[in-house]
C-alpha cells in the first residue's frame, strides 16, 4: 500500500524540534510514527501523520522546508525472519532502498520503505 510521508528539514539548533511538535499539537495533528535522520548540521524528520496536507501547510507557514513523499507500507507479522523474506523478494536491480522505518499497529508492525522505483517494488511485494 502507498502512504504519504511528510519530511521536514530541521536545522540543528536549540528548540527547533520542539517548534515542530508544538505546531503539530496546536493543529491537532497526530504523529503515527516518525524517524529522525541526523547529520552534523541538520536533521530530516520523516513522519506519517493523520493529516499530511494540513501538516505541510502549517509547517511551511512556520518556515520549515517540507515535502510530501510517497512511501510503501508493508504489513509484517512479527515473526522472526519476516523482514528478510520480504526483502529477498525484491530483485537486486530494483532494490534501491533509500531508507526504512516501522509504524507500529495492533496487528503487527508496518514497514515503511522509501525506494527509487515504488511501482516496481509494490508489484513484486504484491500488496
Amino acid at each position: 500500500m502507498r502512504m504519504n510521508q511528510i519530511s521536514v528539514f530541521i536545522e540543528n539548533k536549540e528548540g527547533n524540534l520542539l517548534t515542530v511538535s508544538k505546531i503539530l499539537k496546536d493543529n491537532n495533528i497526530d504523529i503515527r510514527t516518525l524517524s529522525l535522520a541526523d547529520t552534523s548540521e541538520y536533521g530530516m524528520l520523516r513522519m506519517i501523520v493523520s493529516d499530511e496536507e494540513l501538516a505541510k501547510k502549517v509547517l511551511k507557514e512556520a518556515g520549515f522546508p517540507v515535502s510530501i513523499t510517497p512511501v510503501i507500507a508493508v504489513r509484517t507479522n512479527n515473526k522472526v525472519g519476516y523482514m528478510h523474506d520480504l526483502l529477498e523478494k525484491i530483485p537486486a536491480e530494483i532494490a534501491n532502498i533509500e531508507y526504512m522505518y516501522t509504524l507500529p499497529s495492533e496487528e503487527g508492525s508496518i514497514l515503511i520503505l522509501k525506494v527509487a522505483n515504488p511501482d516496481k517494488v509494490e508489484a513484486v511485494l504484491g500488496n
Binding site: S7, F9, T39, Y42, M44, P65, V66, T69, Y99
Partner: peptide
C-alpha cells in the same frame, strides 16, 4: 534551502 527544490533524501542535500 529553496523549498521548491527541497529533497527529503539526505544524499541529495
Amino acid at each position: 534551502v529553496d523549498e521548491r527544490f527541497f529533497s527529503d533524501e539526505i544524499k541529495e542535500l
